[in-house]
Design a protein around this nucleic acid. Structure first.
Lengths: 348, 348
DNA sequence: CAGCCTTGCACAATCGATTGCAGTGCGAAA
DNA sequence: TTTCGCACTGCAATCGATTGTGCAAGGCTG
């Protein structure tokens, strides 16, 4: 029977009494310190057997009270940001796999204000992982935190905490090179307008990568970036054979809504417009046409993030910045640039 | 400065020393027991001021060591099941909001075997919330757990734990009535074949609700259920004006893949086939056509689940089963049944 | 057979809080 | 002046573990 806050919870003393030994001996036997502290095999086996029989499970709170470490790590994320949701489960899973292997557990830190950060203190968290934090409240509090910290998907100009980010410029380059090879020149970068804060680094990185790569090709003039609603974007920017012939979107969310709007306008993808999205999340491969994506290595990010945190907790290394490569998954939404001039149905 | 496992963490004794009082007085002043234990206002204010100045934060582990309660609740979910992912973030958020208001925090319980359940014991968790658990390992271990338990989206024939489920039959009835009103008679229920276990209750409930409602209308003969790949389904079941004219899918995942396959075959939605999905998740409103959905009340489920758990923890009530209503969100994927006979392009 | 080293274990302090109970000091009553 | 009582606080035990140190046996040597 697995009990929670059980009144009859069996303690180390129960085990000690039950096998006629002291609690210190039990503790040492149970923690494999039998050689260091010279516990006889006989005593050790007796302890092991009794503990098993009684179903003894060490109380984590007592166990970590002496220790400085809590073996708990906080994970802070803002579920409010849907762009991240698509890959959140993946990140969470890989984070957890890595941490669990090291004996750590994840405590959810829900709030984004000072109360949330106090959890670090109250629970004596060994570290904190921030998933794609782009609210200015969090950002302004980061420097107050004196605990190992890992930022996922958030490149801040600070070397005091580890950061794991995908190489957005390289991903964007893959995407644009793919489009260039198809003859596209007038290309747009699109994000659905929300509260774009100055701390929204992944947006900034993708946008500036777009501008950089376009400029390198001498196409700065035909590059357009947008941060607005789909309707507003499509009414402002001419899309199709006689306008911009390809669009790269900030996330999979934009891609889905944009595809819908394009189809509604009677535009064909990729015959009239090519489409590439960041994030290989559902439903990019389930759309018709399936969307070519820049694959952000979510699972790898979780794994690396966890490792960086563990390194810091163990004092094995200083905070580091790690950049992970992105890759391009070519599907059906990209193709040769249309000839231009004689576009199909213009608009509704 | 907010510290984690800080070496210089300020304790209650530091506060006591700093204001020339004993740690017991500090404790009592800090916990509002000044009236019960007759702490003078002078002493109390001095403590409060000193604690604040020193940035004292009570060590949660020490605080809850005496107490039976840990004020931590475990959340167990299997990220492997994508159907649930679409609404997981929503559930998590509302769970957390409710629990946090009561001073509880969520500990992530990752593993699905006995190790995972031992966390309950080790961390003296006050309770456990299981999100849509349908692996037989978990199921076979449930009865071993002697702690307040809430199952979300998992109706098990057991009254020892609280359960929160959406009213699948009512949702299915809304969906089918909607289709009946459009004249549909040959209707299919579709799920993408995966490891359908006997403990996969939400699938069972939806499927049997489908069969029940169809039978009530005397349409048992024209009802088809499927649990296979999209390709296999479409090659086995004739879909379109001269076959099944409407499909209800187990989740939003199926809907997206199915829509893609239908469009690929040249079938029009809803002119040739109508489509309804469970879960109002992304990208149901971003597809073209936007998908009519049965809205599973994810946020409400989280809130109610948290409340049921708190009730049990506080001993205020016995485990209860709560059923929450679903609703239908009509979009573009449903319309009048086609005439039949002269269907459009048959298949590729 | 005394002295010594090893082996094997128990005692007690400690982590950071909470809490029952025992004090201290003061004024008032006797 | 002694005593009683009340207002206020400190002492010490406790929660369930870990760990430094001390102390008995027992085996060995000389």
């Amino acid at each position: 029977m697995i009990k929670g806050r059980s009144e009859t919870s069996v303690t180390i003393h129960d085990v000690a009494r039950s096998c006629g030994l002291s609690s210190s001996t039990v503790s040492r036997a149970l923690n494999g310190k039998h050689v260091e502290y010279r516990i006889s095999d006989k005593a050790r086996n007796r302890v092991l057997e009794t503990a098993d029989r009684l179903g003894f499970k060490a109380n984590w709170k007592a166990k970590t009270l002496t220790d400085r470490r809590s073996f708990q790590v906080g994970i802070l994320f803002q579920a409010a940001f849907p762009e991240f949701r698509g890959i959140f489960a993946e990140i969470l899973t890989s984070l957890n796999n890595t941490l669990e292997a090291a004996g750590y557990h994840l405590l959810f830190v829900p709030v984004h204000d000072e109360r949330g950060l106090q959890l670090i203190q109250q629970h004596r968290l060994d570290g904190l992982i921030l998933c794609d934090p782009h609210s200015s409240e969090i950002h302004s509090m980061l420097h107050q935190i004196d605990a190992p910290l890992v930022l996922l998907n958030h490149l801040a100009p600070d070397t005091r905490y580890s950061q794991v980010i995908p190489d957005e410029e390289q991903g964007m380059r893959l995407a644009l090179d793919h489009l260039f090879a198809f003859g596209h020149e007038k290309i747009a970068f699109f994000r659905m307008g929300r509260h774009s804060s100055p701390t929204h680094f992944s947006l900034e990185r993708r946008r500036s990568a777009f501008n950089t790569v376009m400029a390198e090709r001498g196409l700065a003039g035909s590059a357009v970036t947008a941060d607005e609603s789909v309707d507003s974007f499509l009414s402002r920017v001419k899309v199709g054979p006689d306008g911009h012939t390809a669009i790269v979107t900030y996330s999979h969310i934009e891609a889905a809504f944009l595809l819908r709007a394009l189809l509604q306008k009677g535009l064909r993808v990729p015959q009239d417009v090519s489409l590439i999205a960041y994030n290989n999340a559902f439903p990019m491969d389930a759309l018709f046409p399936a969307i070519t994506v820049i694959d952000v290595p979510a699972s790898k990010m979780g794994e690396v993030g966890a490792k960086l945190l563990l390194e810091q907790i163990n004092g094995e290394s200083k905070p580091r910045h790690v950049t992970l490569p992105e890759s391009l998954i070519v599907r059906e939404s990209t193709g040769p640039a249309p000839r231009g001039g004689s576009g199909p149905i213009a608009r509704l």
